[in-house]
Amino acid sequence: MYRFKYLIFGLFVSGAFAVDLAAHRIGVWAIESTQDMSRWVIIHNLESATTTGLYHIEVIGRKHGNAVWQVERLVHHMAVTEKALKASIKEPLEKGGVYPESFNNAFAAWQQENNGKGGSICDVSVVDCM
């Protein structure tokens, strides 16, 4: 009986990793919300990430009840592995983009860390790395 439960759990968990990030060309995904805020990630390098496995994202949020333009940048840039990103996303979104200047500045700073080799990389989940 226990083996059957583990088999079902294993199939459920492996299904979560079957998400094809590249298939959602917009690159905007909902992540875990808080009690008062919806949150999502914007993938800025979707095309190159499909080969490198390293995604450069920003995390955006909007308090429940606020107008659509009242968004907050929660993380300007985060480098995240595919495994960590897939562990974080809940559903694809059709809207949610913002102007990229803030991300671009934070990404450029990240690239300069460690003598130009880049900074830290999240490999657990986006929420855990925030």
Score class of each variant (00 low, 15 high):
His76Lys: 13
Ser120Ala: 09
Asn114Val: 03
His64Pro: 04
Lys5Ala: 14
Lys117Tyr: 00
Cys129Ala: 06
Met1Pro: 15
Ala23Tyr: 06
Tyr55Ala: 05
Asn66Phe: 15
Lys95Phe: 15
Lys5Phe: 14
Asn66Arg: 14
Val71Met: 13
Gln112Gly: 00
Glu101Phe: 12
Thr50Val: 11
Phe17Val: 11
Asn104Ala: 10
Ala16Leu: 13
Ser125Gly: 11
Val124Leu: 07
Ala109Met: 03
Leu74Trp: 01
Ile8Asn: 06
Glu32Leu: 06
Ala18Leu: 12
Glu113Gly: 00
Glu101Val: 04
Val19Ser: 05
Phe9Lys: 12
Met130Asp: 02
Ala23Lys: 09
Ser33Ala: 15
Gly118Thr: 02
Val98His: 13
Pro100Tyr: 02
Asp36Arg: 15
Asn45Arg: 07
Ala84Cys: 11
Gly116Cys: 00
Arg39Pro: 03
Gly96Lys: 08
Gly15Met: 07
Thr81Ser: 14
Phe17Thr: 13
Asn115Gly: 11
Ser88Thr: 13
Met1Gln: 14
Val28Tyr: 02
Pro92Trp: 09
Phe107Glu: 03
Val59Ser: 03
Glu94Pro: 12
Asn104Ile: 01
Trp110Gly: 00
Arg73Asp: 04
Val127Leu: 08
Ile43Lys: 07
Leu7Gly: 14
Val124Glu: 08
Ala79Ile: 01
Met78Leu: 11
Tyr6Ala: 12
Gln35Cys: 08
Val127Ala: 05
Ala23Asp: 10
His64Thr: 09
Pro100Met: 01
Ser125Asp: 08
Asp128Gly: 04
Phe17Glu: 05
Ala87Phe: 15
Lys83Met: 12
His76Asp: 08
Ala67Val: 08
Leu21His: 06
